[in-house]
Design a protein around this nucleic acid. Sequence first.
DNA 1: CAGTATCCGTATCGATACTG
DNA 2: CAGTATCGATACGGATACTG
Lengths: 102, 102
Amino acid sequence: MQKQTIGCVKAATAVLGDKWTPQLLRFFANEPAVRFGSIQDFVEGINPRTLSARLGNLEQEGVIQKITKPNTTRCEYCLTEKGKALIPILTAMETWSRTYES
Amino acid sequence: MQKQTIGCVKAATAVLGDKWTPQLLRFFANEPAVRFGSIQDFVEGINPRTLSARLGNLEQEGVIQKITKPNTTRCEYCLTEKGKALIPILTAMETWSRTYES
DNA sequence: CAGTATCCGTATCGATACTG
DNA sequence: CAGTATCGATACGGATACTG
């Protein structure tokens, strides 16, 4: 999704509107910290290029935090407080989707 | 935004993820019924082609309802119950955006 | 007034191969 | 393992002119 200028929902849609992002956040919500490879395994179909882009966005938005383990190339991603605050919204969206699905 | 296959949030993001849609829904939320021209006036910058596409989507998703006045080309759009149920989510997104805006 | 038709630039995303 | 580079398809949306 292209960066939107949509008033007060701007930030939220800039984060949630991209393809894969909701799944990613759902996954993050259930794990304290995840690695790149784990995400690829869990979110089937996403390719590294796209995943990398999403993680970059989310980190820049302050929704997730990247922690690189010292002396390794290993790193982990986890939700920030800002990211955790997104979970209830995601849940509400899921509820809505299930309630009104045809 | 391209149609996504994102599990349980699918429907919600398919509706909310498009450019302009949040503003449109906000506008609908405050008016019992609106005409095409009013929307164009209110949502500055949207062009008829795009507005038409959004309205088509939203109607097809059952989020809004189109009512054509008999014997005229005039018509009005208003939220359905399904559409009204989206408002709290939109509000939550706005709150989140305002809370964490840099 | 309420759209539709056409054209076109750009953003987005997938596939795939490659790197430190 | 954790990405980046490159290429290409296509979806999205803006501008504009036109129609019933």
